[in-house]
Simulated assay, not measured.
Amino acid sequence: MLSVHDLLKIGQLYLQNGQWKGKSIVSSQWVEESTTTHSFWENKPYGYLWWILDDETFAAIGDGGNIIYVNRSKNLVIGIVSHFVPRPKDRIDFIENHLIPVYNL
């Protein structure tokens, strides 16, 4: 029941290596550890609750289609809240092939 604003806060916290308004909320070591590959699901790298998309990008993807997308090199966080969708990983395609190009990010 998180709002898109809540998702963006979590993404921003991770983008800032655990810092929020100048305070350490989550250790930078935990941010690094949780966004590092620890297992694979259907040949896709997975950290601790984060899908590892490449060296700079990771995403938390809910079964229903909610997503937190973080790209460090672009200094970018995208949050999507939605009703249930059957293929939530399609959100990555939507973000990378439709949203990011529109904004020239």
Results as ranks from 00 to 15, higher is better:
residue 1 M to F: 12
residue 2 L to V: 09
residue 3 S to I: 05
residue 3 S to K: 10
residue 4 V to R: 01
residue 5 H to V: 08
residue 10 I to C: 06
residue 10 I to V: 15
residue 12 Q to K: 13
residue 18 G to R: 11
residue 19 Q to Y: 09
residue 21 K to G: 03
residue 22 G to H: 10
residue 22 G to P: 09
residue 24 S to Q: 15
residue 24 S to I: 11
residue 25 I to T: 08
residue 25 I to L: 14
residue 26 V to H: 11
residue 28 S to H: 11
residue 28 S to A: 15
residue 29 Q to E: 15
residue 29 Q to T: 12
residue 31 V to E: 06
residue 33 E to W: 14
residue 34 S to E: 13
residue 34 S to T: 14
residue 36 T to H: 13
residue 37 T to F: 07
residue 37 T to H: 09
residue 38 H to E: 11
residue 38 H to L: 12
residue 38 H to D: 07
residue 42 E to A: 12
residue 42 E to P: 02
residue 42 E to Q: 13
residue 47 G to V: 04
residue 48 Y to V: 14
residue 49 L to Y: 15
residue 51 W to F: 14
residue 52 I to V: 13
residue 53 L to F: 00
residue 54 D to N: 15
residue 54 D to H: 08
residue 56 E to C: 07
residue 57 T to A: 10
residue 58 F to V: 07
residue 62 G to A: 15
residue 63 D to S: 12
residue 63 D to E: 11
residue 64 G to N: 12
residue 64 G to L: 12
residue 65 G to M: 05
residue 66 N to G: 09
residue 69 Y to G: 07
residue 70 V to T: 06
residue 71 N to C: 06
residue 72 R to K: 14
residue 72 R to G: 01
residue 73 S to I: 02
residue 73 S to G: 06
residue 74 K to M: 04
residue 74 K to L: 11
residue 76 L to E: 07
residue 76 L to Q: 07
residue 78 I to C: 05
residue 79 G to C: 07
residue 81 V to G: 01
residue 87 R to V: 00
residue 88 P to D: 00
residue 88 P to Y: 00
residue 90 D to T: 01
residue 93 D to P: 00
residue 93 D to N: 06
residue 94 F to T: 04
residue 96 E to P: 01
residue 98 H to C: 02
residue 100 I to Y: 01
residue 101 P to C: 03
residue 101 P to N: 04
residue 103 Y to W: 06
residue 104 N to V: 00
residue 105 L to K: 03
